[in-house]
Design a protein around this nucleic acid. Sequence first.
RNA 1: GCCGGUGUAGCUCAGUUGGCCAGAGCAGCUGAUUUGUAAUCAGCUGGUCGGGGGUUCGAAUCCCUCCACCGGCUCCA
Length: 647
Amino acid sequence: MINVTLPDGSVRQYEKGTTALDVAKSISEGLARNVLAARVNGDVIDATRELPENTTLQLLTWNDEDGKSTMWHSSAHLMAEALEFFYPGIKLAIGPPVANGFYYDVDFMEHSISEKDLEKIEQKMKELAKEKNPYVRKEVSKADAISYFSERQDPYKLELIDGLEDGNITFYTQGNFTDLCRGPHIPDTGFIKAVKLTAIAGAYWRGDEKNKQLTRIYGVTFPKQSELEDHLQKLEEAKRRDHRKLGKELELFTFSQKVGQGLPLWLPKGAALRERLENFLKKAQRKAGYDQVITPHIGNKELYVTSGHYAKYGADSFQPIRTPDPNEEFYLKPMNCPHHCEIFKSKPRSYKDLPARFAEFGTVYRYEQSGELHGLTRVRGFTQDDAHIFCSQDQVKDEFKNVIDIVLYVLKTLNFQNFKAQISLRDPENPEKYIGSDENWEKAEQAIIEAAAEKNLNTVVAYGEAAFYGPKLDFMVQDALGREWQLGTIQVDYNLPERFELEYTGADNQKHRPVMIHRAPFGSMERFVAVLLEHCAGDFPLWLSTEQFAILPISEKYNDYAENLSQLLNNYDIRGFVDDRNEKIGKKIREAELKKIPFMLIVGEKEAENKEVSVRQRGQGDKGSMSIESFAEIVRKAIEEELSSNV
RNA sequence: GCCGGUGUAGCUCAGUUGGCCAGAGCAGCUGAUUUGUAAUCAGCUGGUCGGGGGUUCGAAUCCCUCCACCGGCUCCA
């Protein structure tokens, strides 16, 4: 007999040879139908494998992340089976589950495949799924594994086997398909009820662009057709919120082939939005003791030789700007830090001057690979809400906490609840990759960890993700498709103060090297606006809206009254316009709603007589009539509330 | 940069077995209408069919090439 401990703490006894699936059946048939895999003593294994004598068991279903990924992993095998049916002789590389489904990388050899072929592959997968073929696990020796894939002339699997230990190799077979695989897998293909192959893309073998490029097919499967439909609906919603689409519709920004790839043009409404965000942050920074500075868009080559960026990125960036003097070269600035270092150096500094905080909305240019460009999130010219703090090592922690406060204020004011904070530290295995003394690194890493803890941040620690010049703390949020984007960042830098030979005089009258902290709460104006657009679907908070109200006269007779109201609201510092076109009220309302204007003020005979306005709120409909003063008060209070989210 | 896809009016899109002057809706302009909470009606304007080259009696449609965009890969100070 074996003892099985379930998550609720209860212990049950079973015959030797019992599987997780048997346990599920003993609890209920319904549960058994939903069990995709099992967590046994911490490891996720097939639900069909024999349980050890003392087992802590958790049955995994579609509601568990591990259940889901097991299903998707099995789906990748199912897709491979279908692919081999249509394209005999193809070579399979790897087929793992990912965040939103699975993929398989395939070398199609002489075959070619396009999106049109996906449907027939889906159909075949569904057919195969209906056969309810079990996924059968088999342990094989390394020699047998090699001989199996040698016969099939699959160089990719052979390379993978080469890296595996003998005695630790397993094959999984379902139907007519056998694959090298660690598993685990779902009990049989019948669990897969809905299939959607989503995309074809290129991917390099082992992610190295020197290797052969394979064809990657992405797909997603579900245990119910309705779940697939929900998923597709979510994708539609994501498309609706896409910042590129909204940016065009709301006339915020555009691109021009003539101006160049990745170089956004901010339209009047977009520029107004940006200005509001900048002022919002400037105000917060002023309170936090920052000084605003301004530096030019280009810098002498010497500046970047000193900073080290010339050696590292010179050849892959925008090429130099020349002058009539053949010995002179200027570069577009790829970052603001070197300029700010020179500002620090502009006069002797004392410890009493520290921390010095220089802030600039600095526009920088980076030659990103053309395939990397994406709307406003990845561009070649962008404006960082940059600042550099020069402080002593002892001040790092407090400065970090102050910056965290600003970042949180920004995220909270704009209603980003689902952000992640990542602490990036050294890779303990490769200490030689980093510059700066061990002691300073130790101190800085500790300072970040403590600052984050004291600010109650929910953090993940990533070893080896630090920059070569210092550890950092990044804030990530998700876009409409669930892709993660880094917004705010705070980085410690030991490199530039060294290279620029920055120093200050300490209380001991000795020269000391300051620590530099880079930070950008938005990240960049471009990326932040993009993510914000997707986050709020274009429904900006009132304080950010370019047009806070639209006055809609019922007929042209009331245009004068409307114009007066508009002036009045302007005096209250509320922005908006009068839609004095000769159109029906229904049309004016529709268009104002589509333009995402927060308040529509409808005026006609009644309102003109009673000196009132009829207020309609975006997405909520009629709010009734009131005086213009009451309306102004409502707006004032709403904005005050939006901006008061103190940390 | 690489793989795959797309490019027709300001916007959204029809039109591709090569063939009458390249179409629609919205937007814009003109006029009628003077309107009560998500589209009033009529007329008009607008396109080197992404750029260049080629095949053909004839090209939006077929071929070559370049550019941009989209989905990925790689990269991201």
